[in-house]
Simulated scan of single mutants.
Amino acid sequence: MNEPPISDEKAYREFVEKNADLGYFYGYAMALCGNRHLAYDLLQITHMNIWRKKVWKIWEDKPDTPQTVYRAYVAMMLRNAHLDYAKAPSQKIKEVELTGIREDDFPDEYQMENEVIFKETAKIVWDAVSKLDPTLQDLIHLIYVEQYQLARAARCIGLADSTARRYHKEALRQLEKLLEGQEIEEGGDGR
């Protein structure tokens, strides 16, 4: 008996789960662009291209194709997305003209004061985070900005759970020192 054809959505999910692992390709995207926000954008573009081009159908009739071929193809798509992004004319700085702003479009004084305090505090904290080792920076970003559990953040940056726990503790210790105005020791990244 012939099996019914798999829906495109199910085939896409299976392909992505097996061959387009987020942690693996996040590392590659970070290496390409050096910016975590752009890395996520590139991953999203790549996954949209996988869906649009129905990449899983390329090898439908070749079930013995090794997984490395799929991963290489997805890596090529990711690299091409990065090159397209870098060449896009939209990446030129645009000047925005502010017209038609009414006085009542602005928040009240109390709200503005709280927003200023929040922004200043965030700037102080993220300035301190930027002084940490890049691995610790990524770990802090994934846990506190992306809201990842520690284990998931560890997988994304290629660390064992126990190592990630140690690095997280060390990052918090270093941040506390930096925020108190103390210097941190060189190489104090929990290693």
Rank of each mutant, 00 (worst) to 15 (best):
D105Y: 04
E113W: 13
A11W: 06
Q111S: 15
F106G: 02
F106A: 06
L98A: 14
K54R: 04
P66L: 00
A29I: 00
D41A: 08
P107L: 07
W51C: 03
Q111W: 13
Q147K: 13
Q91M: 08
I58L: 10
L32D: 04
Y110H: 12
T65E: 12
E120N: 08
M76G: 15
L139G: 02
H82N: 15
E185R: 07
Q137V: 02
T163L: 08
G187D: 04
Y73E: 10
I93E: 13
E180A: 05
D108K: 09
M77W: 00
W59G: 02
E186I: 07
N35L: 07
V96I: 07
V129G: 01
I101L: 14
H141T: 12
A153I: 00
C156G: 07
Y110I: 14
I58N: 12
L98I: 14
T65H: 07
I58A: 10
A29N: 04
G187V: 02
G27Y: 00
K92V: 13
F106P: 05
K169M: 11
Q182C: 11
A86G: 02
P5I: 01
R191V: 12
K131V: 03
D21I: 07
E109A: 11
H82I: 06
R191H: 11
Y28T: 05
K54I: 01
E185L: 06
A72E: 04
S7T: 12
P66V: 05
T99Y: 15
R191T: 10
Q174A: 04
E115G: 13
A122N: 11
R36I: 06
W51D: 04
A11Y: 06
Q174G: 02
T135P: 01
A29S: 03
A39R: 04
P4K: 09
V16S: 06
I50P: 03
E146A: 05
P89M: 05
K18C: 10
A151K: 14
M76R: 13
A39C: 06
D108P: 10
D138M: 14
K92M: 11
L83F: 09
R36E: 10
E17Q: 09
T68Y: 00
A29Y: 00
K123E: 15
P107Y: 01
A171G: 05
A72Q: 03
T163E: 11
I157Q: 05
E183Y: 08
I117T: 11
D84W: 11
D138A: 15
Q149E: 12
R79H: 15
H47F: 08
K54C: 03
I6P: 01
H168Y: 12
H82D: 11
H37N: 12
I117P: 00
E186M: 14
V55P: 05
T121F: 04
E176I: 02
I93V: 15
S90F: 07
E95S: 13
Q91S: 04
R52G: 08
R166F: 09
I117N: 09
L83P: 07
R191D: 08
K92Y: 12
V96A: 02
N80V: 00
A72I: 03
R166W: 06
V55Y: 10
R79V: 12
L172W: 02
H47P: 07
L136C: 04
V145W: 09
G188I: 06
H141V: 11
L159R: 01
E14R: 11
K57H: 09
K177D: 13
C156F: 14
R166N: 14
A86Y: 03
Y144P: 03
S162V: 12
